[in-house]
Amino acid sequence: MTVSDNNLSTLALAIKAWGRELGFAEIGIADVDLRHAEAGLRAWLDAGFHGEMDYMAAHGMKRARPAELVPGTVRVITARMNYLPREGAADWREAEERRARDPRQAMISIYARGRDYHKVLRARLQQLADKIRLEIGEFGYRVFTDSAPVMEEAIAEKSGIGWRGKHTLLLNREAGSMFFLGELFTDLPLPVDQPSEPHCGQCRACIDICPTQAILAPFKLDARRCISYLTIELKGAIPLELRPLIGNRVYGCDDCQVVCPWNKFAQRSTVPDFDVRNGLDNATMVELFAWEEGDFNQRLEGSPIRRIGHERWLRNLAVGLGNAAVQCPGDAAIVAGLSARLTHPSEMVREHVEWALAQHR
Rank of each mutant, 00 (worst) to 15 (best):
A12V: 10
R20F: 03
T10H: 13
S228R: 09
G72A: 13
Y55L: 10
L134A: 15
L22T: 11
V192L: 12
S177R: 09
I308M: 15
I136E: 00
L121H: 12
W18T: 08
A12C: 08
I29A: 03
C206T: 12
R312F: 02
P198Q: 07
E301W: 05
A148P: 02
G40D: 09
H310L: 13
E26W: 00
D187Y: 02
G72Q: 10
F180D: 01
Y141L: 04
T2V: 12
L321D: 00
A217E: 12
L234W: 01
T186H: 03
E21V: 05
D295I: 05
A217Y: 10
R312T: 05
I305W: 07
S177M: 05
T73R: 13
D295S: 13
M348P: 00
R113A: 02
T186N: 14
S147Q: 13
N82I: 06
L169S: 10
G162V: 02
R86L: 13
R268E: 06
W313R: 11
C200S: 10
A17D: 12
E233R: 14
N263F: 03
P211Q: 10
A333N: 12
A43V: 02
A123F: 06
R164Q: 11
C210A: 14
A79M: 04
E152A: 05
E233P: 06
H167S: 06
V250E: 06
F289E: 01
R80A: 14
G236S: 10
R115H: 12
C256K: 04
L280Q: 02
R249S: 01
D273S: 02
E311C: 10
A283T: 04
D146T: 09
G201R: 05
Y251W: 08
M53I: 06
L22A: 13
R65N: 14
L84R: 07
E52C: 11
A266Q: 09
E96I: 05
A205P: 03
K166Y: 12
F144T: 01
W355A: 04
N263G: 01
P103I: 05
P66E: 00
E96L: 11
G40I: 03
A95D: 15
W291G: 07
R243K: 15
H310W: 14
R63F: 12
M285L: 08
T145W: 01
R315A: 07
E138I: 03
V276I: 15
D331M: 02
V250I: 11
R115A: 14
Q359N: 04
A356Q: 06
H50R: 02
E183Y: 07
L357I: 05
Q327K: 13
R277T: 12
R113Q: 14
H167V: 00
W18K: 13
G51V: 08
G165R: 08
I15C: 07
E293C: 14
G201N: 06
G247V: 06
L170F: 07
